[in-house]
Design a protein around this nucleic acid. Sequence first.
DNA 1: ATCAAATCGTTGCATTTGCATCGATGTATA
DNA 2: TATACATCGATGCAAATGCAACGATTTGAT
Lengths: 162, 162
Amino acid sequence: MAASDNQSSKSDNAAFELANFTPYRTAVVAQLLSEALAREYRDRFGISIPDWRVLVHLSAENGASVRDIEQKVVMEKSKISRAASRLVTRGLIARTKNETDGRLIHLSLTDQGWAMMGELLPLATAFQKRIDTILGAGSEAYESGLTRLWQELETSRDFDQD
Amino acid sequence: MAASDNQSSKSDNAAFELANFTPYRTAVVAQLLSEALAREYRDRFGISIPDWRVLVHLSAENGASVRDIEQKVVMEKSKISRAASRLVTRGLIARTKNETDGRLIHLSLTDQGWAMMGELLPLATAFQKRIDTILGAGSEAYESGLTRLWQELETSRDFDQD
DNA sequence: ATCAAATCGTTGCATTTGCATCGATGTATA
DNA sequence: TATACATCGATGCAAATGCAACGATTTGAT
């Protein structure tokens, strides 16, 4: 027991297993889900994950500002701004000025954008069904875990960033 | 009902809610977990998430090759290689040649690396405890959901990539 | 033994990302 | 009203990333 501290830590640390570490496990599953999903709609529609999130949000809210999306979708505003630029170039969404507040920019799907979402969303729904099948009876428990973590971590995050 | 298809899709899509989409929800929670964790060990130890994963894997396996880490940790090998370079520069890990197979490179923690992990791992353990507290009784159900998704998606991923 | 194919780790390169900053607009205070 | 401050979205820039090579080494087939 006269060994140095860094040697003693070598044995202590054996208790820690990355495979049981929830942040790591969640990150891997999130990545696998993203990859599986992205493979479908990137190959068929040429859109990235940021693109996808913006499009879905706009289809759900029927239009929103960059700030709206940023708050709801947990993405950097620069990422959203650039995704919006790509989508505008492709004619999928439109930028219009907000009348009451000149700082805000109203993003909304064009007819072409709606048409694409008409193909895209059923694909997402089918993917969700597949996930539910995988999770089986544990589906609700898994979702409730996500909800708890989200709520708790988001409040502590906002707190830290003040 | 004589409206065009893209208009009809506008109402159909109202059923889809990003907030209920498991890939999205999982991605956000993973990001929040990463941010919360990274804030602790980036500020205190100056290491990134790829650095962290490499270090933890090396502490668990007591040394490994890039290929080993790649398979176990679901990270690109170039990402691992660059993380390793950073960690070597900082004196936290060492690169040694594998005797039996000259292609493999054996990565292992230096004494200094072990010393850092001696501080780092308790921090991770505490974080895991906090997560378990948040999840409460639903902890096991959440973890089992992660396990199922991981298993299923990884096999289908390998399948697709052939 | 020889030569082709596979594996491992690194690196070049184009793209993406995060952060800080900027200009433009709106709000609040004196 | 005049002036300081806050907010919104875009952009410059450095760093990180993913992918496709590449050289070095090993394996397998003939």
